[in-house]
Amino acid sequence: MLWDESDSDGDDHSDSDSEDTELYEEIVWEGLRNKTIVVKNGDNTYRCPLSPGRKKQSYKYRELLAHATGVATGKKGPVKAGGHRAVMKYLLAELGDRPMIPQAERILYLDQVVPKRKGRATRLLAPWMGILVNIDNSRTNENGFRLAPGPAEIKEKFKEYKPERVDVFHDFRGHQGTALLTFRSDIRGLEDAQAFEHSFAATNRGRKAWWEEARSANRDLYGWQAAEKDLESNLGRLAKHIKNYCDVKTVKDMVQENERLNKQIVEDLVKIVDKKNDMVAASHTQFVTLQNMVADVEALRLKAEEEKRNMEAQHKRGSWQSICVISQISLHITSRTE
């Protein structure tokens, strides 16, 4: 329902808070929300749907908002006040956070160049590993063999990153000052490996800083997450170790492999549960069979006892009859003798 205010601009009312005002506000608000009443033109200008008789049907956002706010004060009656309140509320609530951008600016913005995605994902070493270099190996024993902290000490030092294993590397001169930290192979292990790398990168002691030619000699530790590029690095036996014992995979590869392994584990567990259920069912069947056999044996025992009692009763009756016959014969013989 629309109202033409062009014929009654001179009306003066002050009942904007009446029930009629609230009723018409609710009606227009519902129409605006379900798009049966429209305030936006196709050319991104605005019009007042409650003033179809007005010559001007093309407002800027702020112009229409000012118009709706003025009429909503109630000077033109509760019908127009309520309807324009709804228009004002709709403009502020639904369109207020979307300021108009000139068409030319929007075209320029949409035509801006978007950076291309890098062609290949970073390939890391699996399981997730961290490389630690520049470990202090300046001390030597009496034979000149270089000494440095071992796996247990390094693992304790980096316990907040939860390494599962630490390997250190030696040559004929002793400790090479390098170590390899192995983390869990799941997503949490990846998070630990990345945290290990970020902690060094934050203090400019990561891979890039270590291989800089201008790096001055120092006694700081350097570390980073092991990746494909480390396979050909000049890290002595550590490089040989990761080349021989590690796989090169992307994060996606590792996630898919873990999903496959987890799926296989679930399938194996399902098979085990099914097998156990079959065993339980078989045991139950055997139990029922044994229970029936026990019941049959018990029935036979009761029947045998009943037959035994019957035979004993018959035997007693037969014995009594025999005694009676013998007694009668004895009496008969005695009487004849006398």
Results as ranks from 00 to 15, higher is better:
residue 5 E to A: 00
residue 5 E to F: 05
residue 8 S to A: 10
residue 9 D to V: 15
residue 12 D to W: 13
residue 22 E to I: 14
residue 28 V to D: 08
residue 30 E to G: 11
residue 32 L to K: 13
residue 38 V to W: 02
residue 44 N to A: 02
residue 49 P to G: 09
residue 50 L to N: 12
residue 53 G to E: 12
residue 60 K to R: 14
residue 72 A to C: 04
residue 84 H to F: 03
residue 94 E to L: 03
residue 107 I to D: 12
residue 107 I to C: 12
residue 114 V to Q: 11
residue 115 P to V: 04
residue 126 A to M: 01
residue 128 W to K: 01
residue 129 M to G: 10
residue 133 V to D: 12
residue 138 S to G: 14
residue 140 T to E: 02
residue 145 F to H: 09
residue 146 R to D: 03
residue 148 A to D: 01
residue 148 A to H: 07
residue 153 E to W: 00
residue 170 H to M: 00
residue 173 R to I: 00
residue 182 T to E: 13
residue 183 F to I: 01
residue 185 S to N: 09
residue 190 L to V: 13
residue 195 A to Q: 13
residue 197 E to G: 05
residue 199 S to M: 03
residue 204 N to H: 14
residue 208 K to G: 04
residue 209 A to T: 03
residue 212 E to D: 07
residue 219 R to L: 00
residue 222 Y to M: 01
residue 224 W to S: 03
residue 230 D to R: 05
residue 247 D to Q: 12
residue 247 D to R: 14
residue 251 V to D: 13
residue 251 V to G: 07
residue 253 D to M: 01
residue 254 M to P: 15
residue 255 V to Y: 02
residue 255 V to D: 04
residue 258 N to F: 04
residue 265 I to Y: 10
residue 268 D to A: 09
residue 270 V to K: 10
residue 272 I to N: 15
residue 275 K to H: 11
residue 276 K to G: 02
residue 282 A to W: 15
residue 282 A to E: 13
residue 284 H to M: 15
residue 286 Q to P: 09
residue 287 F to Y: 13
residue 287 F to D: 15
residue 293 M to V: 13
residue 295 A to E: 10
residue 297 V to E: 12
residue 309 R to H: 10
residue 310 N to H: 08
residue 310 N to S: 09
residue 316 K to E: 09
residue 319 S to F: 02
residue 321 Q to C: 06
residue 326 I to R: 08
residue 331 L to S: 09
residue 334 T to N: 07
residue 335 S to V: 14
residue 335 S to T: 15
residue 335 S to H: 14
